[in-house]
């Protein structure tokens, strides 16, 4: 995708990130928004402990409900993910996820050797499904304390978004939080640093290998209402679309592949204009 089109997408990502993190006073005071809007989930990975966040992260919400003493499953968050996933699939990853934007921007930093793919890449992409099932669902459900409460294991041990969006700022502003720092903060900082470095070298490593939200939406990608279509009569088989895809998807083989984040790079690269967005049946 040429720079102009890519930056157009980044502007929309940034606008959405600003909209869902519009409690700007929180960034100044080091406090979080405590209003009723936080009843609602946002579609992307956006930590609710980010000082600006005005909505709830669906993955955090799911763990909070599963891990609470009076519920064993999170129908609200699961239904929300089904609804958004069935309508848009991984369009959310490409356009509406603040952490996706961060990785997109980091990947623009020049590096000696960018890595498109490597041995084991395909296998490693299945890791996000394991993380979804184990850390988001099973552990909060079964590894519980005497009161029957489970921790948000994904948020606690894996998610670097919480450290980036909430941890750094809150700790900077809050003296009492600074005094409570320990090994967990160090661990999560290491994870964040590794994610940042890898994002410079590999395109969206967190989305490809780790993100449980991406895993959920990827399941819906093949049947989502918003989809891509390749006009086989127009397609010349030049391979320009597959070559430009940073998620290593070949739209001609599968235009609605689970890894496609609908970034539109293939659409723009197609010289025959054979790839279109559509809401129509395949």
């Amino acid at each position: 995708m040429d720079n102009k089109n890519e930056w157009k997408r980044h502007r929309i990502q940034a606008l959405w990130a600003l909209l869902t993190n519009s409690y700007l006073v929180g960034f100044v005071q080091g406090k979080i928004y405590r209003g009723k809007l936080k009843n609602l989930c946002v579609p992307g990975l956006n930590c609710y402990s980010c000082p600006g966040a005005v909505g709830s992260c669906p993955i955090g919400a799911m763990q909070a409900v599963i891990g609470s003493w009076n519920f064993r499953f999170a129908f609200y968050a699961a239904g929300f993910l089904m609804f958004v996933g069935a309508l848009a699939g991984r369009f959310v990853c490409g356009w509406l996820c603040p952490f996706g934007l961060v990785q997109d921007l980091l990947h623009k930093i020049p590096f000696v050797k960018k890595i498109d793919t490597f041995k084991g890449d395909r296998l490693l992409r299945r890791l996000k499904y394991v993380i979804l099932i184990v850390f988001v669902i099973l552990l909060p459900m079964f590894l519980v304390d005497v009161l029957g409460q489970g921790l948000p294991y994904f948020c606690k041990y894996i998610c670097p978004a919480g450290t980036l969006e909430g941890g750094i700022l809150l700790v900077l502003f809050n003296k009492s939080m600074r005094s409570a720092l320990g090994w967990l903060y160090a661990w999560k900082s290491v994870l964040l640093i590794v994610t940042v470095i890898l994002s410079v070298i590999i395109y969206r490593p967190f989305c490809k290998y780790i993100c449980p939200l991406g895993a959920v939406y990827s399941v819906f990608n093949p049947i989502s209402v918003f989809r891509y279509r390749v006009d086989k009569e127009k397609c010349t088989g030049c391979g320009a679309c597959a070559k430009v895809c940073k998620m290593q998807v070949d739209p001609v083989k599968n235009a609605n592949h689970p890894e496609c984040i609908r970034c539109d790079a293939c659409k723009k690269a197609c010289p025959a204009k054979a790839i279109t967005n559509t809401f129509q049946r395949p």
Partner: peptide
């Protein structure tokens, strides 16, 4: 999920700083 009161759990978690999320504990 809303009818059985899950939203209240989400709100309760979201309006307080999630110590696990930010890496405090």
């Amino acid at each position: 999920g809303i009818c059985r009161g899950e939203m209240a759990v989400v709100l309760e978690k979201a309006i307080n700083i999630c110590m696990e999320c930010v890496g405090i504990g």
